[in-house]
Design a protein around this nucleic acid. Structure first.
Length: 330
DNA sequence: ATCCAGGGAATCG
DNA sequence: CGATTCCATGGA
């Protein structure tokens, strides 16, 4: 695949016509390896294909383990240090970080652009997000520096909906076990990890099926969510287009979804980055940081949203993961 | 053994 | 209203 200067010109020209905000430059590096340097705002993504794998130069604000283990997603298998198998977006991804590179195994450029770039939120400038948050309150600096590789994933709505219904009053390790069990029994089989089933498959499994996967009293909540989902009452496109308050209200119409779970679903799958989920950890952490006494979760949620504004979700996630890792307030 | 988990619904006062 | 209790289940 020789690239002549004329081809380069044509390629750049079409790309620029496609999206004036994206500026593509093509370079040639070592042995015909095509390097694409993509600039999105202040973000530079240097990326190329090698042996069928897609590779990006590891970004400053992206650590795979932190992004996956921070409690926002539950459907992955750790193979090694910074080496994971992820089941998401009706796909399985083997991804690793080594020597300053992020490797998307067996992935082509098109799939990266269409699926994973957005999933890992790679278009977003986390350097800027962090500096604005620290400007709002420099007490966030410690948590942000410690968890600097966390990115908020753009996860698929239905799996996130069910996963966070399962999450209520449950430890993260068990949430993962139940998600894996539901996928294993009722989803499509994959290599090393299974796919999460759709609403139809879960409805066919029924409440008892969910109980068999150890969902306990949450089984009936899962069924209610699936019924509303297939009835079109929980439309992903509508919820994505809706503003934060609308989306949360619609989500709360499901039995078993209260404020915390609705905020998690809105934050992790509906692009509502001003959401502020308050769970037991955030309660402890915020009480230790700001209130210095027992405080109702409703008050903490209001306080967080007012303090961090449009970036509440990011602040929440840095604080949650940091506080939980250090056992703050416990 | 006992407490508690990325909470929320049902019930009570 | 706000406060309490119950819910399944197993990790720590």
């Amino acid at each position: 695949m020789l690239v002549t200067s004329h081809n380069l010109f044509l390629h750049c020209n079409t790309k620029l016509k496609k999206n004036k905000d994206l500026c593509y430059n093509l370079l040639y590096k070592i042995f015909l390896k095509r390097i694409i340097i993509e600039r999105i705002g202040r973000i530079i993504l240097e990326r190329y294909t090698e042996d069928g794998n897609f590779i990006i130069e590891k970004q400053k604000d992206f650590i795979l383990s932190q992004t996956l283990e921070c409690g926002q997603c539950f459907h992955f298998v750790k193979l090694d240090e910074e080496d994971y198998l992820i089941s998401a977006k009706s796909r399985i991804l083997h991804i690793a970080q080594k020597e300053n590179r992020t490797i998307f195994y067996n992935t082509d450029e098109q799939t990266f652009d269409k699926v994973w770039k957005h999933y890992f939120d790679l278009e977003r400038d986390y350097g800027k997000i962090k500096s604005i948050l620290i400007e709002k309150d420099d007490r966030l600096a410690t948590a942000i520096e410690a968890m600097s590789g966390v990115r908020i994933l753009n996860q698929e709505f239905f799996e996130t909906l069910i996963s966070f219904i399962i999450s209520q009053n449950q430890q993260i390790v068990r949430i993962k076990q139940i998600v894996a069990a539901i996928s294993s029994r009722y989803g499509r089989k994959g290599e090393g990890i299974d796919y999460f089933p759709g609403a139809t498959e879960i409805l066919a499994a029924g409440e008892q099926g969910m109980k068999d996967c150890k969902a306990g009293f949450r089984a009936k909540y899962i069924i209610d969510a699936c019924e509303k989902y297939v009835a079109g009452e929980l439309d992903e496109k509508k919820l994505l287009a809706a503003d934060y308050n609308e989306a949360v209200e619609i989500l709360k119409s499901v039995k078993g979804i209260g404020s915390k779970v609705a905020n998690c679903i809105a934050l992790f799958s509906l692009d509502k980055r001003n959401a502020f989920p308050v769970d037991v950890w955030i309660k402890r952490i915020m009480e230790a940081m700001y209130f210095h006494k027992e405080t109702p979760v409703t008050e903490i949620e209001k306080f967080g949203k007012e303090k961090y504004g449009e970036l509440s979700g990011y602040a929440q996630q840095y604080l949650f993961y940091y506080g939980k890792t250090l056992n703050i307030g416990k």
